[in-house]
Design a protein around this nucleic acid. Structure first.
Ligand code: MN
Ligand code: MN
Ligand code: ZN
Ligand code: ZN
Lengths: 152, 152
DNA sequence: TTTTTAAATAATATTAATTATCATTTATAG
DNA sequence: CTATAAATGATAATTAATATTATTTAAAAA
């Protein structure tokens, strides 16, 4: 935890941004809920628990800043809100997601999986890939087994 | 064109929806601008040219309906608006996109490219894939060549 | 340490995309 | 033709996100 905070502090300082108490509190929330996919509002409510004086606009600004620095990735699962996802330590690309259309759960895939596809895109389309967004929609393992049970 | 309209008409009737004049005008706009990625507002303005009496809410409702029937796919490229993209004729899955971070252009990839990845997701994660969203962010061919010219 | 300066923040107003409401119109079945 | 439900248009309401501005904070300079 402290190690990751330090790392992020350095990334901010490298671009001459400060790690203010508000920004640190925001980052801590993101670290604590790393598996989740929080909206700005979600983050705001959680940060307020430890830093009640923080304003919503500051949370938005902080998330925007962290996005620019590629510390978090902004993603949209199709409900009306943007969600913010900490990039895995040392990852060059954003990780992938499995969204269950039955129960709404979101699972993460940290493995790259797209190396071959990116090579094809670079070679055949002449497009220099910098990053990607990959989300699969379907039925998660649990909902599949529940479907079997309820039909037997 | 008429062929595709007929097809969509049948898909609507199969779920006992009507192809009203407003819906048809909307579909025609989507067909005419198939390569584009129009927002609801964009569609509204274009439909108004041929059917000036149409209301914005009807366009939203139509796009929502077409999304449910998988005739169009709703996608979000990270600017604040949803965009609507006709699914290619006979395609089981949504196609892919290349978004240039320099010029903002959006290129389409109709080839599947994800068969192997989906097999891995099904086998290793036990997730039954129904659909996907794949967008690459990077530098398009044209912006790459312009970068070479301007630096020489 | 005190002063200076720019960055950052909180509160709030504003914008803009989307959805909800509701009275009216349209299409279809009997 | 009449009855019934679906669809529409106009408009109000919601809400995520951004802009504004006065104030505070923190680093840099004196
Ligand atoms: Mn994630
Ligand atoms: Mn497309
Ligand atoms: Zn599920
Ligand atoms: Zn470009």
């Amino acid at each position: 935890m402290e190690h990751r905070i330090d790392r992020i502090k350095k990334q901010l300082h490298a671009q001459s941004y400060k790690l203010t108490p508000q920004r640190e509190a925001t980052v801590r929330v993101l670290l604590e809920r790393e598996e989740d996919h929080l909206s700005a509002e979600d983050v705001y409510l959680l940060v307020k628990e430890k830093a009640p004086e923080i304003g919503l606009a500051t949370v938005y600004r902080t998330l925007e800043l962290l996005s620019e620095l590629k510390i978090v990735d902004k993603i949209n699962f199709g409900d009306g809100v943007s969600r913010y996802d900490l990039r895995k330590e040392g990852a060059a690309h954003f990780h992938h997601h499995l969204v269950c259309t039955e129960c709404g759960s979101v699972e993460e895939i940290v493995e790259d999986l797209l190396e071959d596809v990116e090579k094809i895109v670079q070679d055949d389309w002449g497009f220099k890939v910098k990053d990607h967004r990959l989300t699969f929609h379907g039925i998660c393992r649990q909902c599949q087994s529940e479907a079997v049970i309820s039909s037997s």
